[in-house]
Amino acid sequence: MTWFNAMFAAEFKRMFSYRVDFWLQFFVSVAVELMVSYFLWEALFASTATPGVVPGHAPEIGGYTFQMMLLYVVFAAFGGRIVRGNERMIIASDIYDGGLTKYLLYPVSYLMVNFSRALAYNSVTIIQMGMGLLLLFAFYGLPPEYNFSFENMLMGTSACLVASAFYFVMYVIIDYIAFWVDTIWSLSVMFRFIAQFLSGLFIPLEMFPPAVRRAVYQTPFPYIGSEPIKMFLGRSSWSQWAHTNLTIILWTIPLFFLMQLVWRRGLKNYTGVGI
């Protein structure tokens, strides 16, 4: 696995090669995301909110108090980044500019090269999440109804990592379409919109009408967003953790075989531009 470590290290180095840009981009994007969400939920809670389930408790929307909704947004921002990974369409670029050719000559799997890159990216994202949460909790504290525990963090992070494998496979399939199509940028952006909306990364799925929510739960998306976030929030048990991960793995296995099929077919179509 030396090559795996080497690829992992190379990706790590690449990410830190423009350090200022890297950290600025991370902090600004998280800050803007949280700010916009904060004002949106503040306005919505100010406009209306049903009284708490228990008399005298804080008002709720979709089962979330304002404080818990903000925490949901925080975990959606960080968890979503772990799940989505680097989304750089590296494979599509390699297909378009002929860069794939050199990997075909290497004695390692091209898929594993990309997987090691994705893992390196996720490792940095987890470090960023730790730092971000530490800063936020230090400055703003924790909502009184939230019990922070490392067990919840472990459940949430591991579920996000499993979900990231599903997302990686989906993204690779879309990238492989580049073997046939001149540009797949719009396709991958479209997938990201749908995945983020249906996984509850924009709005908690509890706010959707019940019939829609039931339909959404027939797809893998809630298990890559809403469910891991609930784990972070301490609203899940270990059995729900197992169910979430099992569901995602069951979705990933057939997609993995589909990905391999698309790869084999695509290679036959590969022209190796620039050779």
Binding site: L44, T48, A49, F197, F208
Partner: peptide
């Protein structure tokens, strides 16, 4: 898809409030 997502986002928001 982007347009639909934006419309749906606010449709869901307004299921829970008359005003924003």
């Amino acid at each position: 898809v982007y347009y639909i997502m934006n419309l749906l986002f606010f449709k869901v928001i307004f299921l829970h409030s008359k005003y924003l």
